[in-house]
């Protein structure tokens, strides 16, 4: 393909009803949907990364001695709890504080 010269992209020229690209849309916080949250038992976690591998939203983050879900993105599907070979993850109901 022929290369095009790169020019500065001026977003202000784009009508706000044109298309869901490069506008004010941001990636949705799927954490807003969650009815249950995964809670990790840090004593049982061996950092095998099974939860990290299976998480469909790729929200698992690594800590010093355990893994846990990033709650902005975690939608509470429970796959990590189901797959954890050490039964270190429990799904706990989200309650109003």
């Amino acid at each position: 393909m022929r290369r095009q010269a790169r020019k500065a992209f001026d977003q202000s020229r784009i009508p706000d009803d044109l298309c869901p690209i490069a506008t004010e849309l941001t990636v949705l916080r799927t954490g807003d949907w969650r009815a249950e949250r995964p809670v990790v038992d840090r004593d049982k976690c061996v950092k095998c990364a099974t939860c990290w591998t299976y998480c469909p939203t790729q929200c698992i983050v690594e800590k010093e001695t355990w893994f846990e879900a990033g709650l902005e993105i975690c939608k509470g599907c429970g796959i990590c709890a189901q797959e954890c070979p050490h039964h270190a993850i429990t799904m706990m109901e989200e309650v109003e504080e």
Binding site: F9, R13, I14, L18, C19, I21, A22, L25, V27, D32
Partner: peptide, 19 residues
Amino acid sequence: WHAALDPERPMAVDPLTGG
């Protein structure tokens, strides 16, 4: 002109709209 994919300027193409 409305989208211009550019590795130096990452953007979300067609992300999910809010509920």
